[in-house]
């Protein structure tokens, strides 16, 4: 009888120990879950963006500035999807809808010399300059449409800049690139949807890397 009672007590204490471990396990599990949910690896954002909110309607890229608010921030790609609001997957939605300019700058490091093709889809106008040379532009308003252009770049660092404006209504901006190994002139009609296969500006490839602008150069001519 005593032996039976002793056995019972041992089983009881073993069960207590197990329930004890259940609690420790729970505490550790919660800790792991919190770590998984709260630790985020930083995304490398190599595109510097300057947003200039205007007080008056913007007619085109040449409209004189009447800036009421400036915001500067960085994003990883030039991809602001078409829509009613200024959106980027890095920061989500923002309150900016109408009448603002954007100046997007990055250091484009070309690993090969040769011809590079660019695709700019915008609503409204834009101007693309590389090393202070205008590559292509659409100075006036338009719905989301694509402009294709190309230029020859030597191996090395280049100052890449897009100047963009949003008037009213829908907005959007998307910039892509590719190294043209064929060396053929780019023709939109002969290359349907070709630009969709091109890399977004900011996303590295075998031929191009992107680096944030040095602070000293970033604020020149702003």
């Amino acid at each position: 009888m005593d032996l039976e009672n002793n056995n019972k007590k041992i089983t009881e204490s073993q069960r207590e120990d197990k329930s004890d471990w259940f609690f420790y396990f729970l505490v550790i599990l919660i800790a792991f879950y919190i770590i998984i949910k709260t630790v985020h690896w930083p995304i490398e954002k190599s595109i510097d963006v300057l947003l200039l909110q205007q007080s008056k309607p913007i007619e085109n890229l040449q409209t004189a500035h009447d800036t009421i608010f400036i915001a500067d921030f960085a994003v990883d790609t030039i991809h602001f999807p078409e829509g009613e609001y200024f959106y980027h997957e890095n920061f989500g939605y923002s309150e900016f809808k109408n009448d603002f300019f954007l100046k997007l700058q990055t250091q484009m490091e070309t690993l090969k010399s040769g011809k590079y093709n660019f695709s700019i889809r915008s609503d409204d106008g834009f101007k693309l300059t590389i090393d202070n040379t205008v590559i292509c532009a659409h100075p006036n308003g338009r719905p989301m449409e694509e402009t294709l252009c190309s230029t020859t770049l030597n191996k090395g660092l280049h100052h890449f800049e897009i100047y963009y404006y949003q008037g009213f209504g829908y907005l959007g901006l998307e910039a892509r690139y590719e190294f043209d190994s064929s060396q053929n002139p780019m023709n939109k009609s002969t290359l349907p949807n070709h630009s969709l296969n091109m890399q977004l500006i900011g996303r590295e490839s075998e031929t191009v890397k992107f680096h944030p602008m040095p602070i000293a150069k970033l604020y020149v001519n702003q």
Binding site: L51, A71, D72, F73, H88, F91, S94
Partner: peptide, 10 residues
């Protein structure tokens, strides 16, 4: 509400 905090958008 949206705020202009440290000049950051969003």
């Amino acid at each position: 509400q949206h705020v202009h905090h440290n000049n950051k958008v969003g």
